[in-house]
Write a protein that binds this DNA or RNA. Structure first.
Length: 552
RNA sequence: GCCCCCGUAGCUCAGCUGGAUAGAGCGACGGCCUUCUAAGCCGUGGGUCGCAGGUUCGAGUCCUGCCGGGGGCGCCA
């Protein structure tokens, strides 16, 4: 991505490098392998700012007590870090705690500010071209609240991967062919003619609406009705997604895979046939997925001659691959998890690497109101649409709540809490911290703020308040949080981080007066720190697709 | 029966791929507005990390087995 100078990137990187270099020096040329030492944020006061487990890892290699090794590490590290290091202490089973100086804290703030709007961005070590396919709900009804989790997850993950330095495309794959669509057409037609919808058909109120929206339904054949209904429903889905701040680069139609002669689907099937992974049995065509770890083979062409959904999905898989994506992410609901094995097997059969097909499993969402649980399924008329949820609690709260929890856990979304516009509601708490900084900075001229950020008049030498140090360490953490969220496909880490950052800022705000602080260098430093906090809160929220208001 | 996810405070959940005395929010209880937004802050109480073994200097985290909850095992998508 951008060619940012290394020094403005991750403040903690040089600290980690120093620790590792020191550990290597103490260790000497011993060839026995040992894990790389870690640098961890200390959890409680009295254990320094950071601590390393290096001595405990080296103990078995050097056959010496951890405490003794830690002492040697300490003197090496003191040499390497110079004035950045206040002191070290050996503690517990052999931890080496580092207490960093105010000089280090000021320097770290400098690095954060110098990185500007791109702080924390572009750290991916192996940038890839990634395609993320998400939501992909069939256009047989409006998006339901559960889709809100998929949409928020995929969108936030895409933003995070992009920020981290990958090249990301987002696609929505929709089924506009096949039995479900046929059923939709028949359902609409039946509704228009006042007849009973077919077994397993669609019954929601929207079906009736479609019946009136489509002119002359009764004269049209079901197939035509289905096509028009899909068009209308897809339009609504797109509108909901746009409102939800979710962007797609492309909506991919399944139908296009069936068109032409040979169709894309037929072409991919013959690739598989040539590779010897396809056979006929019981009048159907099968893909030998068992060769690649599946527990049974899968039908691709039914005995009726119709292709299965899997056949189309495999064609789509190959299409994406041929478009040059090195990795495909396709988050799906927990009810589709068995599908992972089939897809990966198909990728192997196509001669690709199954590891490049990643399918994060998203667990279910329960809407909770008091002790009531609202049903989320698309069956019957009883479901909450995403639009209804957005009407109820707003875009920001919905996204934040959907992203707050790890995607592989079922989620209880508390509507009472989400509706509240107070600090009890985590999303407002974070936004409030941002607005508060904006409000504070409005009391100053732009020139004053610029001068403070630039450090033109200096930041002084005064001893820093514990809250100032804490906030700086929290800011220093940001690049690592992004790297973790990206690598582990876990956007919820950013939501958790944004809360912690807001808390750190609020503590600083409580303890340290900013505007009017004396002497002037102290005011400058605190203004600069506030700006860094504001930018980083804004960046975190932006990665979640949540707004960062200037005022509340 | 087999496979996948999950059991952490009254509730909802974090816990950075093995580290020190297990954290946050909500709820409960008590306190704080003549200074930059009280949409805020401070304090109190609250735990056999489902159970039992194992691995090791060290386990909420890794392994095995049980118990409990959810999901999946179609020529449906």
């Amino acid at each position: 991505m951008s060619a940012t100078p290394d020094v403005t990137r991750a403040p903690l990187r040089e600290l980690v490098a120093a620790v590792r270099a020191t550990a290597a020096a103490v260790r000497g040329g011993d060839p026995v392998s040992a894990p790389e030492p870690r640098l961890e944020r200390s959890r409680r006061a009295g254990q320094g700012d950071y601590s390393t487990n290096a001595a405990m890892l080296l103990a078995p290699v050097l056959r010496a007590p951890p405490a003794e090794i830690a002492t040697r590490l300490a003197s090496e590290l003191a040499h390497a870090l110079g004035d950045d290091l206040e002191r070290t202490e050996v503690a517990g089973p052999g931890f080496l705690n580092l207490v960093l100086s105010d000089r280090w804290h000021r320097r770290t703030l400098r690095l954060v500010l110098d990185a500007g709007e791109r702080y924390g961005a572009g750290h991916a070590e192996d940038p890839e071209r990634i395609l993320i396919e998400f939501v992909s709900a069939n256009p047989t009804g409006p998006l339901v609240a559960a889709s809100g989790r998929h949409a928020a997850y995929g969108d936030a993950l895409a933003r995070i991967l992009e920020y981290h330095g990958h090249e990301v495309s987002r696609e929505y794959y929709f089924n506009d062919a096949g039995s479900q669509i046929r059923l939709l057409g028949e359902s609409v037609k039946a509704r228009a003619e006042g007849e009973e919808v077919p077994a397993g058909g669609y019954r929601g109120d929207y079906v009736g609406e479609l019946a009136t929206e489509i002119e002359g339904v009764s004269e049209l054949d079901p197939e035509r009705v289905a096509a028009l209904a899909v068009e209308l429903l897809l339009g609504r889905i797109k509108a909901t997604l746009a409102r939800y701040q979710v962007r797609f680069d492309r909506f991919f139609s399944e139908r296009t895979l069936h068109q032409g002669s040979p169709s894309e689907l037929e072409r991919v099937l013959s690739l598989l046939r040539d590779a010897g992974h396809v056979y006929e049995s019981e009048g159907a065509v099968w893909l030998r997925t068992t060769r690649f770890g599946d527990d049974k083979d899968r039908v691709v062409i039914r005995s009726s001659g119709e292709p299965t959904y899997l056949a189309a999905d495999v064609a789509y898989l190959q299409d994406k691959r041929e478009r040059g994506f090195q990795r495909q992410l396709m988050p799906v609901g927990a009810d589709h998890h068995a599908y992972v094995r089939e897809l990966r097997a198909a990728m192997s059969a196509l001669g690709g690497d199954a590891e490049t097909v990643e399918v994060p499993i998203l667990q279910f969402v329960h809407l909770v109101e008091g002790s009531e649980r609202a049903a989320m399924s698309k069956r019957r008329g009883e479901f909450v649409t995403l639009d209804e949820l957005l009407d109820e609690i707003g875009v920001d709260a919905t996204r934040f709540f959907m992203l707050q929890r790890s995607h592989d856990r079922t989620l209880d979304l508390d509507l009472d809490l989400a509706r509240r516009e107070s600090s009890e509601n985590p999303v407002y708490y974070v936004q409030y911290a941002h607005a508060r900084i904006a409000s504070m900075l409005r009391r100053l001229t732009a020139e004053r703020v610029q001068r403070a950020i630039g450090g033109d008049s200096g930041w002084g030498e005064a001893e820093l308040h514990a809250s100032e140090r804490e906030l700086i360490k929290q800011l220093a953490q940001f690049p690592d949080e992004i790297a973790e969220a990206a690598q582990r496909r876990g956007p919820h880490r950013i939501a958790v981080y944004s809360l912690e950052l807001a808390q750190s800022f609020t503590a600083f705000y409580r303890d340290c007066h900013v505007v009017g602080a004396t002497p002037e260098p102290v005011e400058s430093f605190r203004i600069a720190l506030s700006v860094a906090a504001q930018r980083t809160i804004a960046a975190s929220l932006s990665l979640l697709g949540v707004g960062a208001p200037e005022a509340m």
